[in-house]
Design a protein around this nucleic acid. Sequence first.
DNA 1: GCCCAGGTCAGCC
DNA 2: GGCTGACATGGG
Length: 299
Amino acid sequence: MRRPEQIAWVELAAAPFDLEKTLASGQVFHWEVVAPRVWRGTIHRAIIYLRQREPGGVLETGRGMEELCCHYFALDHPLEEIYATFPPDAAMQEALAFCRGVRILRQPLWECLATFITSAMKQVSHITAISHRLRQRFGSPLAEGLHAYPTPEQLARVSEADLRACGLGFRALNLRETARLLADGDVDLERFRQLDDETALQRLCLLPGVGPKIANCVLLFGYERVRAFPIDVWIERVLRRYYFSEAGRRPTLRQLQEFAAEHFGPYGGYAQQYLFHHARSQPRSLWAKPKKGVSSGRS
DNA sequence: GCCCAGGTCAGCC
DNA sequence: GGCTGACATGGG
């Protein structure tokens, strides 16, 4: 590991940008804090250091990494224009106030797909731990003791038992079988770039362990489809509480998806990420379930 | 011990 | 199309 004073820091034009919240918002799972306000991670096989000495302040990276960082962190996304498309309701505006400066990354496709296959019914901290174990055990060594995310070829030849030993549980076979489809050339993620959102979603859903939620995450965090709106347990809670509180019956997933597409517009993916991160950052008590046996409003 | 987590899938109606 | 239960694991 390098010390901050050993790095030739270069400023990047990024405002508005909140590095800490962006990396903590549950879209990427391997960046580490290595010194106060300094993060280290990898983009493909490059080791990247980033520093932001105050939240939303000047962003710096090591000399030579500027272009890579600008692309990966989507520093070209016009955030103020995006915010102007958000609906004016309280839930959205509170999330915006909390998350201002969070950017949706352009992640390497396979790493994004694979980490979200491992994410099913897991907490962010678990996904992070699994991601690090997979890198350490099966990924190509880089410098500083770091490892690249294992390629499809590397994961395709790992035994199920060795994958389960990383804490993958029932996700182990899904990850390996999807890795095999890519390693064998039966699926080419790069080619999906030319498909429209709906077709790309359908094609991703054909992969083992990939359903609509994970496919939408990959569209959003890998393919830069900023309209994609993944619905997980948190987003479902938010939508039901703030947008469907008067509906008698519990809305179906399809209804939620259709509402979100209409209500949040062309940058629905940004809106979704802000609602997700805001909700998850609030005290648990705000989202506590009513206890069984106590009156829940039903008569 | 219980509950929950950035879900998916097969089997059923 | 919608609903249900099974599927692992770790932390609060």
